[in-house]
Design a protein around this nucleic acid. Structure first.
Lengths: 103, 103
DNA sequence: CTATTCACTTTCCAATATGGAAAGTCATAT
DNA sequence: ATATGACTTTCCATATTGGAAAGTGAATAG
């Protein structure tokens, strides 16, 4: 009921969120500004995408102070890591199914 | 000018077209009905997606007769195979970048 | 030889999605 | 008291995706 039977997580199809997630999967957590710059989007867009991921429990947002100013840090939750791994596996299956048939 | 700098082919982001393309990458060509059923979409949707891929030269459509009735066959062009390979490579890069950073 | 049927194509319409700009929030810093 | 910084929300405009329905052209059926 969650995924479209092919194992792909809908939220990970959009390139921006895929990039964000892939990046997060490689680190413990990342700063808002770092994510925004690596994804090449505006503040508002990143904010909305992170909220979307957070709303479904794939990402956890933590607010903390750095240099007296409030900063936001994002991290994949355990669920987020699992979901991303499943997504990647599904992608690989698609590709490998193809590669196998091509022999 | 073609791709969004990350190597991903925009047309391959949508799951439906990714599935169609992955499938086609594994075979010489496929029948319209086979693709429609494997992708789980309606005639109109498959027709439009194939046209979209064909419009930019990623897929070639061939009309031929089988049992007296006209059938449509789809095949990836050389450009389509290259583009798909690049897309897959870009996906793997995203994931591997992540995996490497996670060590 | 007109009527159907088959195999798509196109057109018509929602429903979403995506993105930036602008305005809004809420702590500091001045 | 005002201005900043760091996001958040709201407002829009555009684009995508998908199905239903109507349309097309070739090939039977009657």
């Amino acid at each position: 009921m969650t995924n479209p039977a092919n194992g792909l997580e809908p939220l990970f199809n959009a390139p921006t969120r895929l990039q964000i997630t892939a990046f997060l999967s490689g680190v413990a957590e990342a700063e808002f500004a770092v994510l925004r710059d690596m994804a090449g989007v505006s503040d508002s867009v990143l904010s909305k995408q992170l909220s979307a991921l957070s709303d479904v429990g794939l990402v956890e947002l933590r607010k903390s102070k750095l240099d007296g100013r409030q900063r936001t840090w994002a991290a994949l939750t355990r669920k987020g890591r699992k979901s991303f791994a499943a997504h990647v596996a599904a992608l690989q299956q698609l590709v490998q199914m193809a590669a196998r048939a091509a022999e």
